Simulated scan of single mutants.
Amino acid sequence: MRKIGIGLIGTGFMGKSHAMAWRAAASFSGDVQPVLVSVADIDGAAAERAAAQFGFQRWTSQWQDLIEDPEIDVISITSPNRFHAEQSLAAIAAGKHVHCEKPLAPNSETAERMARAAAEAGVVTQVGFNYVKNPLLKLAKQMIANGELGEITGFRGIHAEDFMASPELPWSWRLDPSGGAGAVADLGSHILGMARFLLGPISGMFADLDTVVKARPEKAGSATMKAVEVDDIARLTVKFARGCSGQIEANWVASGHKMQLGFEVTGSKGALIFNQERFNELQFFRNTDTESRNGFTTIVAGPDHAPYGLFCPAPGHQIGFNDLKTIEMLEFIQSIMQGKAQGPDFQEAWEIQKLVDAALRSSRERSWVTP
């Protein structure tokens, strides 16, 4: 059995998700066994706790230790955005495969440099757009490609959450402009990536970005306010290279929404509706139905939608967020073994970052732009 050594950078929300996914992937990966070698966090105590909780062989407070560790083949990066480039490029230079959370970089120029470095080094990369790993999203993509919706006429997409809604929430790394844009990068990259996954390249856009909360407490309980320089809401009108148009929104101050990542695709023969808050369901409408019997049909996730069956033998029992992350890591292992990306990889993340940059430029110039 071949073993692949894993080094994890970061122990926050996504760090824990990565650790659980790598552990779970070991149950399904056949002749390839991911081994949790080491975990790094600037907070050494957090790294030590994560090592004990998830079964890493060792821990460190210096991420560079993972790059230099000969037993580590894969670097899994879940650090704040502004560190992604430095850590990824160091791992690539050391000949290690890299999984990095999104957004890949603060701008498309840096993302391009990362993608080119990975290609030249011959390492396999993956970026954490795990929502497109949903078996029902793959079904939706297949249905669109097969022509079941006919000619595509429109797309409406949204990623809205409320974790930044309170103006009392203190300034944090998410608002640091050195890490890139705000909601349009953090949430928008997901729905932009999903739009590309389903319908292909976006050839033009007009964007309106808005900062709703202009200043936040410098830290919890502080009366000192710090200006917010990134967007809270992004509204985009887009044109797809295939010919249809659409609207996309990214919003992290959407009170009441915890995970409204969804889309509606309309076509000449039917439509699809999806919402991540009920991500084991896909709504399908066929306009061949008689008027007295028309309406959306609910497609419920089950073993017929691979790889759902790895997790549960019964339809309708549902898979969860961390299962999507496990699927992501399983496909990454397959990519490493095959020597080619299944995506989304650094190249695709660069394409998505071009769209984020285009949104910033369009909003600033108040004009249509080509990514």
Rank of each mutant, 00 (worst) to 15 (best):
D304C: 02
T297Y: 14
D304S: 12
D289Q: 15
F296A: 05
G295S: 06
L272D: 14
A271R: 14
P303R: 00
T288F: 08
E277Y: 12
R293Y: 03
T298E: 13
N275Q: 09
G295T: 08
N275S: 12
D304E: 15
E291W: 03
F285V: 07
I299M: 08
G295C: 05
F274E: 06
R286V: 01
P303W: 00
P307Q: 09
N275Y: 11
A301R: 01
L282K: 04
E277I: 10
N294L: 01
F284E: 08
E291A: 03
D304G: 06
T297Q: 15
N280W: 11
F285Q: 05
P307L: 07
N287F: 13
P307I: 06
P307H: 09
I273S: 05
F296T: 02
N275L: 11
T298R: 12
Q276P: 02
D289F: 12
N280T: 12
V300A: 05
A306R: 02
R293E: 09
E291V: 00
I273Q: 08
T298H: 05
T288Y: 07
S292T: 04
T298W: 08
R286P: 03
E281K: 11
L272T: 12
N280S: 13
P307Y: 10
D289A: 15
V300D: 10
F284R: 14
V300Y: 10
A301H: 02
F279V: 02
L282G: 08
I299N: 12
A301E: 07
D304L: 08
E281S: 13
G302N: 05
F274D: 06
I299E: 10
D289L: 14
N287T: 04
D289T: 12
F285Y: 13
F274S: 04
S292H: 02
T290V: 11
T288L: 11
E281T: 13
D304H: 07
F285N: 07
G309F: 09
E281A: 14
E291M: 01
N280I: 02
N287D: 12
S292G: 01
G309C: 04
R293S: 00
N294M: 06
L272P: 13
V300F: 09
A306Y: 03
F279K: 02
Q276N: 15
Q276S: 13
F296K: 01
N294T: 10
H305K: 02
N280Y: 10
D289H: 14
I273W: 01
H305E: 08
N287G: 03
G302D: 09
A306V: 00
N294R: 13
V300R: 10
L282W: 02
F274L: 05
T290P: 05
R286F: 04
N287Y: 15
E281Y: 11
N280G: 15
R286H: 12
I299K: 07
R278P: 03
S292E: 08
G309V: 06
I299Q: 11
A271Q: 10
F279C: 06
I299C: 11
R293W: 02
D289P: 01
N280D: 15
D304Q: 12
N280V: 05
T288W: 10
R293P: 00
R286T: 10
I299W: 07
F296E: 01
G309K: 06
E281M: 12
Q283G: 12
F285I: 04
S292Y: 02
Q276W: 15
A301C: 04
F284Q: 09
F274W: 14
Q276C: 10
A306F: 03
F284A: 07
P307A: 09
F279L: 03
E277R: 13
A301M: 08
G309Q: 11
N294P: 00
N294E: 07
